[in-house]
Design a protein around this nucleic acid. Sequence first.
DNA 1: ACCGTCTATCGACGATTGACGAAAAGAGGG
DNA 2: CCCTCTTTTCGTCAATCGTCGATAGACGGT
Lengths: 107, 107
Amino acid sequence: MRDTDEDIAELARALAHPARLRILRLLLATPGCIGGDIVAAVGLAQSTVSEHLRILKAAGVITGEISGPRICYALNPAALAPLVAFIDTLAPPAGDACHVPDERDTA
Amino acid sequence: MRDTDEDIAELARALAHPARLRILRLLLATPGCIGGDIVAAVGLAQSTVSEHLRILKAAGVITGEISGPRICYALNPAALAPLVAFIDTLAPPAGDACHVPDERDTA
DNA sequence: ACCGTCTATCGACGATTGACGAAAAGAGGG
DNA sequence: CCCTCTTTTCGTCAATCGTCGATAGACGGT
């Protein structure tokens, strides 16, 4: 992770689609692992959902682990750090004391 | 602001381009107002930059105010709140204490 | 071994985005 | 009134995105 503009842009692009946001919410709301249930939930074709999953995985926002016949998708919120850091740079609101220590964010 | 998935996606899309990130950084680093200087900084055609500015303005991330012959662009970080809220929803485990309660955001 | 289920990948299509140059519109100054 | 400067808008082109159906690979159960 290099936190370049391209990296941040790719991260933002991963979030730049309602279907992907929905998938992330679904992943968040799901206690364990889900597979094809996502397809039914978002109401898109299986291949389309798989593509969105791939994009999210490529961006590092989620992780996929094979769990028998299914795949266990899990959120990886840490991957969003660069994007959050960028937004935080733009929006230094009242409470700057709420600074999450990111040891390798110094550069 | 309705904080729907589409709204958040549009917000994320506004950040989903290196040129726009660069413009935002530039706007942040600029003390006052800049106009065509942005064109030279990003190295794109003037019309292209204008288009990016339009997108950012449409997303509410920046505001444009006429200041004589030029236009004064300024950041509007508050517009990013829904996106930040969404990301915060995904990544709550670490520092949830850093929550800025916005009582009028509930509606 | 076979089948059913689940996921990933391929190829194709339409829609959208990003880029440019050219031209038009708005605001001041001579 | 005309001129200049700055920004926006228009038309066009290539590239990418989002979607789908169909297909292929992997795994567990019968």
